[in-house]
Each structure stands twice: as structure tokens, then as C-alpha cells.
Design a protein around this nucleic acid. Structure first.
Lengths: 404, 404
DNA sequence: ACGTCAATTAATCAATTTAGTTGATTAATG
DNA sequence: CATTAATCAACTAAATTGATTAATTGACGT
């Protein structure tokens, strides 16, 4: 009973927690708004200038922040903007896909410093974790010593229940069951002491969008990522919401209907996998899609037809999502060419306008800003987020937003 | 820019806010777990016994808590359980329905002390607010003076965009437009200085379930309330989530399909309104449903047929909801007889098991525990919640649940 | 059977620590 | 010299820890 509260209410708003909370708050504001002087930070955080000054000196001494050039030009003492120090911390991300795996090394500002890719016909745990091990060794080997000690964790993005999709992958059920019995954290512990975060692949992409993209500054949105299967993530109050079972934002499983009214899941009609099948059926090679991420015009008519039905179904799914949570916007990204992404966004916008929006606030439809690599990038960012930034932006008491 | 953060990040985790937060925390734990001694509270809240003691004495001096009888029987000094003091605070709730309005006076423990009902063919603002005014005067008139000063607000539960449903109500569009141009807070200010909270009616019912019901102790669930139109609410991390536009949980607008595959909203098939139409078409009187809330067996075959299709559609809608947020459970309540509610719950459970749950954690289906009056009760509870209890249960830094 | 005392647990007192705020001071600029 | 930023110094809010007091039960001795 006690521990039930320890994970739900959790709070003992103790004092040490207060300082850490405020440190994370300042780092989070800096990540979102860019370099900012103490005075401005104090205003945003609603803290006194003195408190901010003390925290800033501490974070600077920990090498998490660096001071920028004094801003001359205005009357008065020049501001000294403080910025996240790229070398303040590093992290590793691994994306496990159905045809390839990616590893990335990320710095504290969210830039990818180094990366490796492994291709395969279907994913096998040993091959992938050996690849991860050697990639980490190579990527961190030639780092200066102080940097190498600042790696704060490994984020792993992997499809939910990967072993259930044997038919699609053309792998044997036997091979895939290895994934079900695998605990990635334990497997990584065989060669690294770094803390491991395992996360759904589309949710990882959503993390990337939310922490490093989101140019519109949205606070609440649903995020679709178009991969071999379409998936998603949820952002509530500026934080990615992972859910009670860590399976929130399973948008590919939203119920839609086929033309005969039979129930169907979104991923059965709006996944890249479906486009691949169409190309194969027409005698083409679906692996073209992976090889050439810039231009799919070789398969133009099929891509176009797929885009039309996908847009229609994503629009219906989006409206359903907005009935559950009144999202400001729907953000769509994926492992697809940017012009196709634009086209998909536009078409979803048209389709959603045709639907019955009674009782709903119809959301804006916007493109993602990260692109095809969002999943690795998000995976790499998760350990940084967990260690240095705010998890949730729920308001504390004492604020003026009494729940009316 | 500043104010953007002031409502989203809000935090300046300042010190005075810290104390208020911990006070609300203890009150919230007491509401959920019942009377508890200081030591136990300290363990649940993860605060020191001394801190809890100080806060408890303060809340006691404010008459929000009363000490129970010392618990003898165990070795050691007997515990003194502290309980919410029913007379610590009062609040008023108003539910505006399509055929009737209810007003309730609630005490600090959530008990309804007094109530009034007004019936009408269709709702008119002046009639309803006059009714509210006289009801408040009557109900508070014979209260002892100290109690009368402890009323902390008025909660108003009202359907979303009521004025758009003229056809269903048989009211003129003219009459209903009065609702669009009305600001309930300003209207109430004409006769009362109490703070006013306006909230969607089904969301109000969800508040009641979450604060005063929820015997299973669920932390995350979607809530359906079966009224003239079916509506809903969302509970995340033990708090009702109202959403960016205060329209989260608009579950009646979830997309389903009719038998021909054409898109439809859940409220078009699973509302009481639909059952009423069927009864009228068969020559019966739909107002029987409102008059006799215990037994609808007079219309048995129609009720049964309606329940079957409603169950099927609610099941589909529930699964869609779980694709957005991985709810532990779906809770169903409504202005219907309890045996029909049980039957509906059971049928939804059967239907959802037949559906395609790939990629989802299929939720439990459970009945609500408040019943037909959940909307007024929730409306009355909202001001108490806003003033004395925790709004959100997001964890603070310093806890051990780092987001992995 | 009954009184006494030790063990136990709860609540509070007193002292300390953490971390915030306010107001004064210093620094750098147009 | 007015202005603005950053920091120093003093103060305050609110938590923590360790000691103390209070109210029991249960064991032991007479």
C-alpha cells in the first residue's frame, strides 16, 4: 500500500527534491528557449534572481552550462546568457527496427555526434547487442577522458511485442521468440554498467520531437510516426506521457473500418508495410523505399494511392484520439521523404475537415520536424531527459491555475 | 512568453508553495485511505513524522481535520487517527440537464447534505439560475453561522455546447442561443460572491467517481457516463484530466461505424436519447425512463436491444481510447437502473474480448460506484477539490521513479 | 490476582539544515 | 549618471534529525 503511493502520489515534497526540481526546471527552460541570462530565466521560472544565480553557478561548476558572450548594445550591465554545454553529458541510443538497427552518440544539446547502422533480413538479439557493444567501444574509444565519463545512459527503442510479427518479417517464430524472453537491460549489463531505458520505438520518436523539435511550441499533441508499422506517442502538458503500462500512444491500434464496415486497426491500412506489399505485388522491390529515403517517385502511382487511403484513415484515427484527449494538434513524421510527409499532412488536413467534428475541437495537422531518424534520436535522448530534465510539467500548488 | 510558462511549466517551486502542496497531499491521502494516524500518513507521504505532526496541528486548528478515538489494543502509545472533518468546508453543485436541473449541498467528506431538483421541458438560463439562487438561500439559511461561512464555491456541470442540440430538445434555436452567450460565472456573480467552476457534465460525474468512488483504487481509467447523450471523462495518475481546451474525455464523439461502414459518433448509437426515440416510435412514453430510475422492465425488449448495440459500440470506442492512453480499466456509470448498468458492463466485457486487441493491453470493464446522481455530486465536489486537494499526482524530482 | 517495570510505539520538542526571499552592493554599459 | 545584471549578506520558510515525553501492553515477581 505504501509503495503504491510511493509511485503514484510520490511526493514527500522534501527540500532536497525542491532544489533538484528547480535545477531541472532551469535546464528544461534553457533547452526549450535557448541561451538565456539569469534575469530572464528567473522570470520564466518564477524564481528570484538570487536563487537562479546560485543554481546557475552550481550547474556551471558541474560543466552542464557554459556562459555566452556578454550581450552589449542595451543600457546597463550586459547580460551573460547561459547555454547548455554540449560536452556536459553524453548518451547512447539504439533503435531496433525490422530491417536495420541504428546506434547514435548524443551530446547534451541533443546533437548526434556519431552513429552506426546495421542491416539484416530480420532482427536477432545477439547480433544486435554485439553490434551495440562494438559501436559503443568505437564511438567512445577516441573521446577525451573527461567526456567518456559523462555518458549517462543507454536508451533502447524497440517495437512493442516485436515477436508477434513473425509473418510480416519472414523470420521463423523460433527466432523471434528470443525477443520475448529477452530483458534488454540485463543483456546490456553483460558489457556495460550504464543505466538502460527501454521504450517503444514510436514513443522514442515522439520524445525526439518533443525535446528537440516542436517548433510550434505545442503543449499537447498526438504524434504519428510512419514506420514499417505506423505508431505513435502522446504529449501532455509538454511531457511525453508513457502510460500506466508504458503503452500509451499505441495509435497504430486505433479502430477504423474498412469499406464494408468491418473493424480494422489503423496499422493495417496506413503502414509503410502496406505500401511495400503493394509494390511487391506490382512486381517492384519494396526495399527501394529503405534504400532511397529522398525520392520515391519511381513508385509514384502506388505511393500516391497509398498516401490517399492512409490520409483518410489517419484523419479518422486522429479525430478519435481527440475525443479521448483534446489535443491542440496532430503531428506526423516518419521514415518517408519530406515531400511525401508534406503531402500526407496536407491530405490528412483535408480529410479531417470532412469528418463529423460534433463535440470536438478539431486539431491542427502539422509535420514533424525531426524526420526519418527520430527513433534513434529519441532513444538517445531518453537517458538525458531522465537524468537532467523535467519529467512532467504538472503545476505545483501555489500557482494561480486553480483547477476550475 | 512568460505567461505561457506561467501556466504550463508553472513552478517556481517556491517555499510557501511547498507547504501548501504537502497540506493538500495529506488531505488527499486521508480522503482516499480514510482516517489515519500521523505516523502512517508520514509513511504514505514520505515525509518525516515531525513535518506531518506540524501540518496536522495546523489543519486541525483550521477545523479541516478532527481527531478520532485513540486506537488501543497494540503495544505502545495508541495512535490517534485523524479524519476529514465533515463540517470543515461545504460546497454547492449545480447540474444542468436537458430535462431537469439539480442543486446539492456537499460537506467536506463528500456527503450530500441537502438537495433540490427542478424539472422543465427544456432548459432556460434565467429559470435555472433563479432556481439555484433560491436553493442556495434555502439550503444555507438554516445552517449554523460558522458552517455558512465555510462554503468554498459553486461547481456547475453543463453539457458541452448545449445550444447546438436544439432539434433533440424540441426547444427553439432562439431559446437555446441564450446559453451560448451566457457566462455562468458572471450570472452567478449577480447573487453570490462564491467562486464558480464550470465543467462538462460527464467530466463532473468522473470527478465524483474519482474522488468519492473508485473502490478498485484505479489510477488510470476512462469513464463513460450514460445520459441523454453518452459522455465521458479521463483519469490519469489518479487525477481527472480536463485537457488543454477543457474538453478531454469527449468519449461520445469517438468514431465508430454503422453497419454499412459509414463513420458515426458513439453518441449516435449509445445514448439514452436513442433508446427514448425507439420507445416513442413504438408508441411508448420515453419520460418513463426519467420517472422510474429503478425499473425499466416495462420497455424490456427495446431496452435489451438498445443495450446490445450500445455494448458493441462502447466496446469499440473503449478499445480506441486504450490505443491513445493505455487505461487500466473502463468504468461505466449512468442515469440508468443498476441492474441495467451491470448488464451493460458485462456485455461490453464480452464484446471487447471479440475485438482485435493487437498492440493493446485490453482493459477491465467495471461499473461506476456513484450512480445516476454522479453529475451533481461531481459538480459539488469540484470546488472542494480545487481548494483543498491535490490537482495532479505527477511526481516531484527526488523520487525514485525516474522515467525509464 | 495484582502491582510494577520494561519494551514499544506515537507524538512532540529542540536544534539543525536546506533552500528559498528580500534588500543592499558592486559591476558594466550607453 | 541612469540603468540593468549579478551577487553578497541577512533573513525566513519549511523541511530533517535526534532527544524527550506520553500512553500503552505484556512479562515478571510477590
Amino acid at each position: 500500500m505504501n509503495s503504491e503511493f510511493a509511485t503514484s502520489f510520490v511526493l514527500g515534497a522534501a527540500q532536497s527534491g525542491l532544489r533538484e526540481f528547480n535545477e531541472r526546471l532551469l535546464l528544461t527552460i534553457l533547452r526549450q528557449l535557448g541561451p538565456l541570462a539569469g534575469t530572464k530565466l528567473a522570470a520564466h521560472a518564477q524564481l528570484s534572481a538570487q536563487t537562479v544565480s546560485v543554481i546557475l553557478r552550481k550547474l556551471e561548476s558541474e560543466n552542464l552550462l557554459i556562459r555566452g558572450a556578454p550581450q552589449r548594445g542595451k543600457v546597463g550591465k550586459p547580460q551573460i546568457p547561459m547555454a547548455l554545454n554540449a560536452a556536459g553529458a553524453l548518451s547512447i541510443g539504439l533503435k531496433v527496427g525490422r530491417r536495420s538497427a541504428d546506434v547514435a552518440l548524443m551530446d547534451f544539446t541533443g546533437c548526434v555526434r556519431d552513429r552506426r547502422t546495421l542491416h539484416y533480413p530480420f532482427p536477432r538479439p545477439d547480433e544486435i547487442f554485439d553490434f551495440l557493444e562494438t559501436a559503443i567501444t568505437q564511438m567512445t574509444g577516441h573521446l577525451p577522458a573527461p567526456l567518456a565519463d559523462r555518458i549517462c545512459g543507454i536508451g533502447i527503442a524497440i517495437p512493442f511485442e516485436l515477436w508477434k510479427w513473425t509473418d510480416v518479417l519472414g523470420a521463423s517464430a523460433q527466432d523471434m521468440l528470443a525477443w520475448r524472453d529477452l530483458d534488454p537491460s540485463k543483456r546490456v549489463a553483460q558489457f556495460s554498467d550504464l543505466p538502460v531505458s527501454v521504450i517503444n520505438d514510436a514513443t522514442a520518436a515522439c520524445h525526439a520531437e518533443n525535446a528537440l523539435g516542436n517548433p510550434a511550441g505545442l503543449a499537447n499533441y498526438a504524434y504519428f510516426f510512419m514506420g514499417a508499422f505506423i505508431g505513435g506517442g502522446i504529449v501532455l502538458d509538454r511531457a511525453v506521457y508513457s502510460g500506466h503500462f508504458k503503452n500509451a500512444g499505441a495509435l497504430g491500434s486505433l479502430q477504423i473500418s474498412d469499406t464494408r464496415g468491418a473493424p480494422r486497426q489503423l496499422l493495417d491500412s496506413a503502414s509503410l508495410n502496406v505500401l511495400g506489399d503493394a509494390i511487391r505485388k506490382a512486381g517492384g522491390d519494396p526495399s527501394d523505399l529503405r534504400r532511397n529515403m529522398d525520392d520515391w517517385s519511381a513508385h509514384a502511382p502506388l505511393v500516391d494511392a497509398w498516401c490517399a487511403t492512409a490520409a483518410k484513415d489517419i484523419a479518422r484515427a486522429s479525430l478519435s484520439a481527440c475525443a479521448v484527449i483534446d489535443f491542440e494538434a496532430i503531428v506526423i513524421d516518419g521514415a518517408i521523404p519530406t515531400d511525401l510527409r508534406s503531402q500526407l499532412v496536407e491530405r490528412v488536413g483535408h480529410e479531417i475537415a470532412k469528418l463529423d467534428g460534433r463535440g470536438l475541437v478539431v486539431p491542427k495537422i502539422l509535420p514533424g520536424s525531426i524526420g526519418a531518424d527520430a527513433r534513434v534520436i529519441g532513444a538517445a535522448h531518453v537517458p538525458l531527459q531522465a537524468r537532467y530534465f523535467l519529467h512532467s510539467n504538472a503545476t505545483l500548488a501555489g500557482s494561480d491555475d486553480a483547477q476550475t
